[in-house]
Amino acid sequence: MKTRDATGFYQNNEIRKINATMKQSDFLKMVFPFKNKVFRFAKRLLASTEEAEDATQELFLKLWKNREKIVDYKNIEAFAMTMTKNYCYDRLKSKQASNLTLIHSDYKEKETSLDKKIEYRDSVNQVHRLIQKLPEQQKMIIQLRDIEQYDYDEISKILGMQPTAVRVALSRARKTIRQELTKTHNYGVS
């Protein structure tokens, strides 16, 4: 997708043709590189694995149904991430409306029993809680930057924010987490 700009118009038309007759397998190949990112992003916002799985399925179905429009978006991955954000927001809103509370599954470590101390596991859990407690926007930015490693332009595109605003929010989020971690570390409160 990124080489498209080099030959511009011609390649653009090529892609349009592919999209119109795109097979499911081609589509799946195209979205495969970022399906995990979509899932993790949804999980960050919905705070539940099951909800995030449903959201991911729903999202790719939506993307598939709108595949003919995809060509109009320069970066499918960023577009998919934006759709994920909007979809999760809608889910959260309808949850609130129907007065259902989301089950917050705590972060679970898979290979804990190996050699990690309980105390250490607690502090990793604490990081999870601290991030979940952040304002939605900061939470998303931490996810997109520190876990998915997007650059600032991509994040600002996904979230529809100015790159400088992204940096400010990110710095604020990181400092908040640091502050809480230092508190715990110094006083030994768990």
């Binding site: 589509f27 799946l28 979205v31 799985e53 972060y107 502090s123 990793v124 640091r178």
Partner: peptide, 30 residues
Amino acid sequence: LQEYEALFYYFAKNKEEIFTETIQLDTKKR
């Protein structure tokens, strides 16, 4: 610097989480 250990460990671990289901594009089959 130990207070940062859990933070970066958490980020590293979270990068590994994957979507284990197969993507279903047929509404009926899903």
